[in-house]
Design a protein around this nucleic acid. Structure first.
Length: 284
DNA sequence: CGCAGGCCCTGGTAGC
DNA sequence: TGCTACCAGGGCCTGC
């Protein structure tokens, strides 16, 4: 669920809550939460304890906290991960995976994750950009995102448009929800063959991605349930503004045609069959 | 190398 | 009521 707007909301929260503070204790309650940290739990703890957090960064759906050692805490929320700021005395919920406490005895950082797709790791020398995520493309809000290069790379692909949009090495931060919403805004079908995309199509697509994510960010992200929350445990409101996602059978906000749901890539795709007509030569 | 599909995981819900 | 089946899906891995 957490896509760029949700992850950015969390990043902003971390920036105001943990930057400048020194880590005093680390507790790993579920080893799977740090499975990407190959050297293991004690190495993870040793790399953090005594270090100061000097920033809060994001690329796509990845977050990292640069440390004064030059390393970084790299985090991915997966489907259900939460990074919460809570008083050390706050009770541990059933899905608490990692606790990071600070030497000022103020609110601690807790990684809570029901479905355990997310996780934390220490990235050696990763303060500027963790090498583990060097293959992740820049996202639409990155000043150095290159629209022309994206268009060229897109046209080189031999696949369907939504598949390409979800490929984090082409453009990052887009997940299933905002992919459907962006395609609807751009009036493009999810199975449009990427090699048939013309420059105006790509411009419309990126405008759709940018505008839907900017709106979602303003509203603190999208929440369907209590799974996605900011660092204070609060949900966003953008789910009220979704045009197609999760709205099978409901009228398209633009033309009134009932929204259709199709199974694609083992997940749901929602679209308006009138505004987003099936291409003559779709790529499934 | 590019692309497609399987797998990981848990809680909620639909259906019998 | 109590069981099973299915659904949500991001990213890594494998195989073609």
């Amino acid at each position: 669920m957490p896509e760029l707007p949700e992850v950015e909301t969390v990043r902003r929260g971390l920036e105001s809550w943990v930057v400048g503070r020194q880590i005093s204790a680390v507790e790993v309650l579920h080893p799977r939460a740090i499975r990407r940290h190959v050297p293991g739990v004690s190495d993870f703890r040793n790399a953090l304890i005594g270090r100061r957090v000097v920033g809060a960064c994001r690329r796509g759906k990845y977050l990292w906290l640069p440390l004064d050692s030059g390393d970084a805490v790299l985090a991915h929320l997966g489907m259900s991960g939460q990074l919460l700021m809570l008083e050390p005395s706050a009770p541990a919920g059933p899905h608490l995976r990692v606790r990071i406490a600070f030497d000022d005895d103020g609110p601690e950082l807790r990684f809570v994750d029901q479905r355990t797709f997310g996780g934390l790791s220490v990235s050696i020398g990763g303060a500027d950009l963790p090498p583990e995520i060097a293959h992740i493309a820049r996202d639409i809000f990155d000043d150095r995102f290159d629209e022309a290069a994206f268009h060229t790379a897109l046209r080189r692909r031999r696949t369907g448009l939504k598949r390409a949009l979800l490929d984090q090495s082409l453009i990052s931060g887009v997940g299933n929800i905002y992919a459907d919403e962006a395609l609807w805004r751009a009036k493009l079908h999810y199975a449009r063959a990427t090699e048939t995309m013309r420059r105006p199509d790509t411009t419309r697509l990126l405008d759709g991605v940018r505008s839907v994510m900017a709106s979602a960010l303003e509203q603190g992200g999208t929440s369907f349930d209590s799974l996605y929350v900011n660092v204070n445990g609060e949900s966003g409101y953008f789910d009220r503004s979704l045009a197609v996602y999760g709205r099978r059978g409901e009228p398209c906000p633009r033309c009134g045609t009932p929204i259709r749901r199709e199974s694609f890539m083992n997940r749901s795709s929602y679209f308006c069959p009138h505004c987003q007509p099936r291409p003559r030569h779709p790529h499934w």
